[in-house]
Design a protein around this nucleic acid. Structure first.
Length: 590
RNA sequence: GGGGUCGUAGUUCAGCUUGGUUAGAACGCCGGCCUGUCACGCCGGAGGUCGCGAGUUCGAGUCUCGUCGGCCCCGCCA
């Protein structure tokens, strides 16, 4: 093995194409591939920029032969020699550096390597388990190298843009007070304060509002956030938000800022996006798509046929409509009619989302047919068919039930059908805003109103009086930005008046004493000249996942956790010493 | 907490439906040959706790149950 000594790298592998032929170069990197032809050996040297081929012939009697024989995959080497042009017939057109190579005069082995557990070529598939265990090697592979680089470019662009727009990046604490509203907190026991715990931030929400009170006017932070909930392909227990807050703004100003920001970010991948994004009300997207984050790259919108069955002799449907439920459906694409098995599969699919069943109506030469009981009169079926615009040969899939169930299951079915029939055009980016969310939602379990967004979201001015009379009708100054059916950000105008905040707490059933105890610092701040303010947080990981064309958030996070929130590489979490537990005044229950 | 799916050589997978001789392939790895390769080629070789544990059976990679782990989904989370 050799030491680096005074030796200096002259350029990255990929940059060698900009060097002059004949120039002496020194590259340092990893042995990617060795092609040993006997007395002539080619070695591909790889660094984070790319690959360059170096060539060693042993006829020079320069002592290189023995050293070349020692080389193995992933050894770390320094290679020096003149840059030479390859013969035209030996160009490698698939390599950016394919017209040149380094004629090795000196090679130093800076370190050896065990045989890697999987090939460094990211085109070759490897189980995620192995990749996560050897994440430091997975990160060496091209795919993750590109994703990490993209992530860097995106955050740099965001910082640059926000800086140019007078935003200040300010850090907020990681050790916080627990607020048991919303997601479960990650807790950190305090050694100094026996029996007390810090909570890791779910978002810097309250701090950024306090920064507005402190007159910073425009704040942002690329902030790590933590939520102790179960994972998904697009959810990790720690994730990154681009957290933004502004004073003296209305939603439109925030929309424009974000649209401009996303425009700049998407230019990094050479994609020009159209602004302004379409704006939808919450009510409209729920009616048309059954979800607050609709994918508008395809049709298959929801059709409401509840009215057609208001007085139906079919009791199940009549009762559902009478109880305020819905009967809604999707017209199958391209006049598709489904086989018995397909219907069974689709029924099983919607059951996952709480639907009790799936019925179809079909327009045939002999009139409208359906899977509904015979007692349903033909006129009702015909009126439903008219309502959804059913054309001859087409069929429509219907789900009946409570609003929540119908919308959730149909929205999932809509996406399922779009994938099944390949209706999603590749490369399309459909951004949209959803606004006017309900401020409150009725929680069946706890029998009380809970905040849809969070308790600091401002109600619409015109709905303020409804808070005490009809809380469910109150709309919030809240908004989400959605890309291709994925929520990539959300925010709101916040409450800046103490009196309004108190009203909202009251509607949420939070007594003033409790409010004082939990959010006293915020209520106090609102009494000292809090400006009207609002903001938004973008899910950076999801955004980069979309930009990179990845299906999982793990592919854009350097060191992610598994579905069971474990780091397979470090084996975190782990048990701790008895001594550590004692210091923290913690006893583990058996 | 629940459902689905996968777990066999360093890696990716076949074998499991229908239990039966010594568990295969490709890539990788090791050795040899080769002066224009770039997925180099050719010859040879090593390499297995079939995730783990029970059970059924004369006999289990294969069947049953449990368990652990990866991934996806529901719940949860915005």
């Amino acid at each position: 093995m050799d030491e680096i000594g005074e030796l200096r790298r002259t350029c990255y592998c990929n940059d060698i194409k900009d060097k002059q032929i004949g120039e002496m170069v020194t590259v340092m990197g990893w042995v990617d591939r060795i092609r040993d032809l006997g007395n002539l050996t080619f070695v591909d040297i790889r660094d984070r920029t790319g690959i360059v081929q170096v060539v060693i012939s042993s006829d020079k009697k320069n002592g290189l032969h023995g050293k070349i024989k020692q080389l193995r995959s992933e050894y770390v080497v320094s290679v020096s020699g003149p840059l030479i042009e390859r013969d035209a017939e030996t160009y490698n057109p698939s390599l950016p550096t394919g017209k040149v190579e380094v004629a090795v005069e000196d090679i130093k082995i800076l370190n050896t390597s065990l045989t890697p557990p999987f090939p460094m070529d990211s085109e070759i598939s490897t189980s995620e388990e192995t990749r996560l265990k050897y994440r430091f090697l997975d990160l060496r592979r091209n795919n993750l190298q590109r994703n990490m680089e993209l992530r860097h470019r995106v955050t740099m662009e965001i910082r640059k843009e926000l800086d140019e727009n007078h935003f200040l990046e300010i850090e907020t604490p990681i050790l916080n007070k627990s607020t048991p509203e919303g997601a479960r907190d990650y807790l950190v026991p305090s050694r100094v304060q026996k029996g007390s715990f810090y909570a890791l931030p779910q978002s810097p929400q309250l701090f950024k509002q306090l920064l507005m009170v402190a007159s910073f006017d425009r704040y942002f932070q690329i902030a790590r956030c933590f939520r102790d909930e179960d994972l998904r392909a697009d959810r990790q227990p720690e994730f990154t938000q681009v957290d933004i807050e502004m004073s003296f703004v209305q939603p439109e100003e925030i929309f424009e800022l974000i649209e401009n920001l996303l425009k700049k970010v998407f230019r990094l991948i050479g994609q020009e996006i159209e602004t302004p994004f379409p704006r939808f009300s919450y009510d409209e997207v729920m009616n048309r798509f059954g979800t607050d984050r609709p994918d508008t790259r395809f049709g298959l919108e929801l059709q409401d046929v509840s009215d057609c069955f208001k007085t139906t002799p079919f009791q199940v449907f009549r009762n559902i409509v009478a109880d305020g439920g819905f009967i809604k459906g999707i017209v199958a694409p391209e006049g598709e009619s489904y086989s018995r098995k397909e219907i069974d599969d689709l029924t099983a699919f919607v059951r996952l989302y709480g639907a009790t069943g799936l019925v179809w109506i079909k327009s045939t030469d002999e009139g409208i047919k359906s899977s509904l009981p015979k007692i349903v009169p033909a006129e009702e079926l015909e009126s439903a068919a008219r309502e959804v615009g059913l054309k001859p040969g087409q069929s429509c899939l219907l789900i009946a039930g409570k609003s929540k169930t119908v919308h959730e299951s149909l929205s999932a079915l809509r996406l399922h059908l779009a994938k099944k029939h390949n209706l999603i055009p590749p490369g399309k980016c459909n951004f949209l805003w959803v606004r006017d969310f309900p401020l409150l939602e009725w929680d069946e379990e706890d029998n009380r109103w809970i905040a849809t967004h969070h308790p600091f979201t401002s109600p619409r001015d015109e709905d303020l009086d409804l808070l005490s009379t009809d809380p469910g009708k109150v709309k919030a100054k809240a908004y989400d930005v959605v890309l291709n059916g994925l929520e990539i950000g959300g925010g709101s105008i916040r409450i800046h008046r103490n009196s309004v905040q108190k009203k909202v707490f009251k509607a949420l059933g939070i007594e003033s004493e409790e409010a004082e105890n939990r959010f006293g610092f915020l209520l106090r701040a609102l009494r000292y000249g809090a400006p009207p303010h609002g903001g938004i947080a973008l899910g950076l990981d999801r955004l980069i996942m979309m930009l990179a064309g990845e299906k999982s958030i793990r592919s854009v996070i350097a060191f992610p956790k598994t579905a069971r929130a474990i780091d397979l590489m470090c084996e975190a979490p782990s048990e701790v010493d008895e001594k550590q537990l004692r210091e923290l005044h913690i006893k583990i229950r058996e």
